[in-house]
Nucleic acid binder design. Structure first.
Lengths: 249, 249
DNA sequence: CATTGATATGCAAGAAACTGCAAGTGTGAA
DNA sequence: TTCACACTTGCAGTTTCTTGCATATCAATG
């Protein structure tokens, strides 16, 4: 294993969990703690992380992502986002829209992955800026300061020019009969989501279980149009059947 | 087997697995490790990959030079940006491009002012998010992580649809004869700046005095096309005359 | 056909990088 | 304060790299 591979893996762990620990890394790699310490010091020298007694933490605070991580593994959004990153196929063109889960999703993306990502979310773009091998294409339009996304006709026009290998949608409400829907103040996002679903070869919806069996005002698409519904934990057989076996975790 | 075939195969392995290893390649090709090393060094020379101890990894694009520039001439930039905000006419449609001075300009904008701002700069958008009466229109395109702006054809197309009351440009080099110009790695920004100048009723260039009488690689426009050159302090009458009385402070 | 020069490859010796160990120092929690 | 653990530093063993040189291959040329 190359030293650089190790460094990347260390960064993956760091981004995923918000910290790394010398002892654990040494065990993972079956190397001496000295070597791990040297690695961490080197990465610190590059300004990528901050060394602390016993391990290291990310260099810059990632406020939003950090808040969600605070409750560690039991945070639904964290779990969903983390699982979703595992479904991303390297070298593909993917679309990511706005929302806190999506921002988390971006922040948990492995450092080493090569991808092209199209997004209209400022926080997503900001997170992906740190990934050297991810090309980001940002969709322009009116800046919706509330959702920190761009919206409107311009976004729509630009989006039409893509066909995605995968798209990852944040969800507000998912229902077996009525499909995916979003609530009132998000009509702008709804048309974007609709187009994303249409223009993607594979549609993934990130959705903590609490959002299942919910209906909102603006319907995006039916469950048939969706390939995967990513939840944070296993669901009952009945529920799974109701959602046509599309729920995964 | 030709050397080029081997190189191609090395690159295939590199992209497929994210790394290559001298030992393994030597075994695959039944060649000495020296030859593989020479191959890798050659490919590195072409900028295709990055050589590391024991093998090679994909060439990672270099991020974040912007942060380094931020602290250069901090006070001068502050003065220039501050003065520029005083020239903004409320209720107008203005364009702001990328750069550290422009970010400062955005952050110094009065909270109460009513405006519509078009920009391709992420930091500018982020600053203006805090101004409730400023509508921001963000130009989409490829995310240039270096300059933290969007660039490319898409930006250009969107920009064509506007005509601005004012535009505020960051400057790298301003010269009486040769006009405004930007240095090498900013060719992407240059075409955007050029269009901004064309499509604005009033062109303001923010420019600390140290950038006067400088010439860079990509010329944007002549001094005639500019309405104001905003500097941090008064200049001599000769200099003022040379720049057609366009310098203000 | 023999010669020549450019390119590619392998080998060997010394240099440099990586890693683990040990001894001494520093840190933080009880 | 004490104590266990983390850290730093220096060193040695191993692996990889660089460099110079010898050999092989091949195409062009006389």
């Amino acid at each position: 294993m190359l030293k650089e591979e190790r460094h990347q893996h260390i960064l993956d762990v760091l981004y995923a969990s918000g910290k790394v620990n010398v002892e654990e890394l040494a065990y993972d790699f079956r190397l001496s703690k000295d070597t791990i310490r040297r690695d961490l010091n080197e990465l610190e020298g590059q300004g990528i992380l901050k060394r602390v007694y016993g391990g290291a933490i990310p260099q810059k605070r990632q406020p939003l992502a950090l808040d969600a991580r605070k409750n560690l593994e039991k945070n639904e959004k964290y779990m969903v986002a983390k699982r979703a990153t595992g479904l991303v196929r390297p070298h593909s063109l993917i679309a990511v829209d706005g929302g806190t889960t999506n921002t988390l999703f971006a922040s948990l993306m492995p450092v080493s992955i090569t991808l092209r990502v199209v997004t209209n979310s400022f926080p997503v773009a900001e997170e992906l800026r740190k990934r050297p091998n991810i090309d980001v294409i940002f969709l322009g339009g009116r800046y919706n300061k509330e959702s920190q996304t761009t919206v409107g006709e311009t976004v729509y026009q630009q989006l039409k020019e893509f066909y995605f290998d995968q798209c990852f949608l944040g969800a507000f409400a998912v229902d077996a009969q009525n499909g995916i829907s979003v609530p009132y103040p998000y009509e702008d996002e709804s048309s974007i989501k609709r187009l994303l679903v249409e223009n993607s070869s594979e549609v993934n919806v990130m959705c903590s279980c609490s959002k299942l069996n919910k209906i909102s005002n603006y319907v995006i698409c039916s469950i048939d149009a969706v390939d995967r519904i990513i939840c944070e934990h296993p669901v009952t057989k009945q529920l799974q059947a109701k959602y046509k076996n599309k729920i995964c975790w």
